[in-house]
């Protein structure tokens, strides 16, 4: 991840090397704008990362797994989508967990819904999403994605 970010920065520096001779004022203006928006949103981002750390430590995946393991059928679909929505972390962490759950006999549609909502629904990041896009969009997007996650699971169950 670190390396990818560094590569992006290098590409951006190359962009600036080309843009600088074209229009120095505009290049400066875009740098200033970047800096200002970074300063504005950095405290929020720090807060979100802090929350994510707290969450991962105090509500570990094992707890989520226990929550999922006890249920079945449509109810498990709802529970697992909800569990995915409140969980947060890289997809790489979701796969092994999903595998364990599947091997333990969890319903595959519930697991598909879990991965979907794990990545694209963020209850913890909701305050940040609302601050950038407005509360209406944040709630609509997460709400409709919740339904989409369950649909994704159901369709997959139908196909497999």
């Amino acid at each position: 991840m670190f390396l990818v970010g560094v590569i992006y920065i290098v590409i951006i520096i190359i962009c600036y090397a080309f843009l600088w001779p074209i229009d120095r004022d505009k290049a400066l203006q875009s740098l200033r704008l970047s800096w200002q928006s970074l300063l504005k949103l950095l405290p929020l981002l720090i807060a979100i990362f802090g929350l994510v750390g707290l969450f991962q430590e105090f509500i570990p995946p094992e707890l989520v797994a226990r929550l999922l393991g006890k249920s079945s059928g449509l109810f498990s679909l709802l529970i697992s989508t909800f569990a995915g929505a409140i969980s947060i972390g890289p997809p790489l962490a979701a796969y092994p967990l999903a595998e364990t759950l599947l091997k333990a006999g969890a319903w595959p549609p519930a697991i598909a819904a879990f991965i979907f909502s794990w990545i694209s629904i963020g209850v913890i990041t909701l305050p940040f999403e609302a601050a950038t896009f407005g509360a209406r969009f944040a709630l609509l997007r997460n709400g409709i994605s919740f339904i989409a996650a369950m649909l994704c699971g159901l369709i997959l169950g139908f196909l497999l």
Partner: peptide
């Protein structure tokens, strides 16, 4: 670094 890159892109 990714965050910095994202904000650079916003400005660009």
């Amino acid at each position: 670094p990714l965050i910095i890159a994202v904000f650079c892109l916003v400005g660009l």
